[in-house]
Simulated assay, not measured.
Amino acid sequence: MEDEVDRLVVAWQRERPDLDVAPMQVLSRISRLAVHLDRARREAFADHGLETSDFDVLSALRRAGSPYQLSPGLLVQQTLVTSGTMTHRVDRLVSKGFVERLPDPADRRGVLVRLTDAGRSAVDGAFGALLDREQRLLADLDADTTGLVADALRTLSLPFDATVPRPSRPS
């Protein structure tokens, strides 16, 4: 079997035999798969009235566990966006009724962002739809191959993850 990346690699090897194009075998495939995954994510989220950025915030709150709330600072850490971007996202989610801002009892000047019942329903539905689409994307892989791919990608991503600050658990 030959895919588009195989054809690209052969063409580059022909045109630039002086360069080692071996990284393209892995990274071009990851890039192409990312496009397909992004499309699947957008479709799954749109079916539940969410943008990808909405899902990122709502899923961070959902994963926090009951009472499904985090400080804006922890949301920034977990979603890797600026505080200004987070403010905009939270404002949009408040207007949709998916989150609410509450005073932080531990810090009189602080606020907490809490998932509403509507937000929980939206993120749970979107997450289920996303998993369905992701399972279809991986349908041609058996469990052993899926594990091998996951292990290889983990090895590849660990050095990058090491440069990202780890969020602390909310109190």
Rank of each mutant, 00 (worst) to 15 (best):
M1T: 11
E2D: 11
E4I: 09
V5I: 15
R7Y: 09
V9N: 00
A11Q: 14
Q13E: 15
R16E: 07
M24Q: 05
Q25K: 11
R29H: 08
R29G: 05
I30H: 00
R32F: 04
H36Y: 12
H36I: 02
H36P: 00
D38V: 03
A40F: 03
A40Q: 11
E43L: 13
E43Y: 04
F45R: 01
F45E: 05
D47G: 12
D47H: 07
D47S: 10
H48D: 05
L50Y: 03
E51I: 00
D54M: 09
F55M: 10
D56F: 10
V57Q: 06
V57H: 08
S59C: 05
R63F: 08
R63Q: 13
A64F: 04
S66V: 13
S66R: 15
Y68M: 04
Q69E: 14
L70H: 01
L70V: 03
P72V: 03
G73L: 12
G73E: 15
L74A: 13
L75E: 00
Q77N: 01
T79H: 01
L80Q: 01
T82F: 11
S83D: 14
T85Q: 10
T87I: 04
H88M: 08
R89G: 14
D91P: 02
L93R: 01
K96F: 05
G97M: 07
F98Q: 11
L102S: 09
P103A: 10
P103Q: 08
D104A: 10
P105C: 08
P105V: 06
P105Y: 06
A106R: 15
A106K: 10
R108Y: 01
R109T: 14
V111I: 11
V113I: 07
T116G: 03
D117H: 12
G119D: 02
G119E: 03
R120E: 14
S121K: 14
D124S: 14
A126L: 07
L137V: 02
L138D: 10
L141A: 08
A143Q: 12
D144F: 05
T145S: 07
A150V: 10
A152Q: 08
R154Q: 12
L156P: 03
D161Y: 12
A162P: 01
A162Q: 09
A162Y: 00
S171R: 14
S171H: 10
